[in-house]
Each structure stands twice: as C-alpha cells, then as structure tokens.
Design a protein around this nucleic acid. Structure first.
Length: 214
DNA sequence: CGGCTGATCGTG
DNA sequence: ACGATCAGCCGA
C-alpha cells in the first residue's frame, strides 16, 4: 500500500479550532518497539493560547513545560498528567502563539497497528499488575475492556502509540518516525461538538465548545 | 451504563 | 498542592 501524504507546515499553521476539526480522520504515525503504530484521530480539543483559561499557557505562562506550545506549528507538546499518564498535543498557528490541539482519541488504522497498540497497552497494564503483586495478563488472557477502550482517551492514546516525554518538542513536519498523514475522508456533518473535558477550574472557558469528535 | 476513588509525581 | 486521567469496583 502506498504511503499517504504527510501533513505540511501550512496545515498546522492555522487557527487552533480549524486545525482541530481538520485533524479528525487524519493518521498519527509513530515508530514503537513493537513496530509502527498508525491511528486515525477520532477526538481532539482546541487550546487557544494566552487568553484561554483552560490552557497551560493562560496569561502568557511560558515555562520549561509549556515552551513547546510556543514553538513553530507542527511541534509536539507532551506532558505528564496526574503523575502517571501523558497527554499529547500539537502546537499550531505560529511561533510565539501558544495554541495547541490535544489528541484525545484514535482508532488503529490497520490490523498491524491494532496488534502493536494491544501489546503496548497490555505491557502498561502488566506494570501495574506487577506493582500490585497480581498475576500478569497474557495475549491470550487479558481484560476485554482493553480492546474495547484501546485508545479512547488522551492517556490511553499515549500508551497505545508509545508516546512519552521522549517525544516532547519534536517537529512533526520533519521527523522521520513521528508525524501525521492524510487519513480517511470525514463528512463535516459527522463532526460532533462538545465542552472540553477535565477543566472545571477554567470558569467560563470550561463551557466553550472546543471539543471535536466523530 | 453512571458514579466514585485511589494511584502517583513533575511542575511551579 | 495540584492536575487537559484511568482502571476497578460498586449499584442500578
């Protein structure tokens, strides 16, 4: 099968709401220890920069952590959340303007990717099993919830795609092993809209309809 | 399926 | 101290 066309700098160098909507259906690609994982994006959120009370960059907060959001469009922004999960964003617009799109969900693009994701998620679950001194899962015997919720949340997406802080601040337009390509055609009437998740502290911004999903 | 809770640690 | 969260457990 012929490799799909990569998304360009120009694609990312636009307003965060527009880019978020257009990212639905696109393919996220990452090389992992089990092989290349490809996922079709199904859920994203826009974080609109210094004026957005839901954004880490609210009020112009520019720290070591938020720095990648200020970099050129197409830069990854990966951070640790709740001490144990990662969240993956892509900086958009332009250098110095900290808008970003949070990747919240995807589905495997092909059977090989599905197998890669299953193994990565299983490996992560087994880390916890080990800590709790419980019996490990195997490829033949693991909870059904794993396949049912393989990559339908920002933390699960990062585990399934093997994304960690090692992948922070990467230029996804140029990187050979971490990038986006064209994916499936999305009919605009199929795009659902809702409030962003998990930002109750963001006052009126918590009600903005900046979550987009299929 | 919806609601609750403990886990766990880098960041500022 | 606090999260742009998740799995597991409970009751319906």
């Amino acid at each position: 099968m012929q490799e799909k066309k990569r998304l360009t700098r120009e694609f990312f160098a636009r307003d965060g709401i527009r880019v978020a909507k257009e990212l639905l259906g696109k393919t996220l690609v990452h090389a992992t220890p089990y092989g290349t994982a490809r996922g079709i994006l199904t859920e994203v959120e826009s974080y609109m920069g210094e004026t957005d009370k839901g954004s880490h960059a609210y009020g112009g907060r520019r720290t070591e952590r938020t720095e990648p959001m200020y970099h050129q469009a197409g830069t990854s922004y990966v951070y640790l959340i709740y001490g144990m999960y990662h969240c993956m964003n892509i900086a958009v617009m332009s250098e110095g303007i900290p808008q970003a799109v949070l990747l919240r969900g995807l589905v495997p693009a092909d059977a090989e990717s599905e197998e890669v994701m299953r193994r990565l998620r299983l490996e992560e679950l087994n880390m916890k099993q080990k800590r709790k001194n419980r019996e490990l899962y195997t490829l033949k015997n693991y909870p059904a919830s794993l396949d049912k919720h393989l990559s339908d949340g920002p933390g699960k997406l990062c585990i399934a795609m093997h994304i960690s802080k090692a992948d922070n601040d990467v230029d996804m337009v140029e990187s050979p092993d971490f990038y986006l390509t064209e994916g499936i055609r999305v009919i605009s009437s199929r795009i659902r809209i809702g409030k962003r998740i998990g930002i109750d502290y963001a006052e009126e911004a918590a009600d903005y309809l900046w979550r987009f999903y299929l």
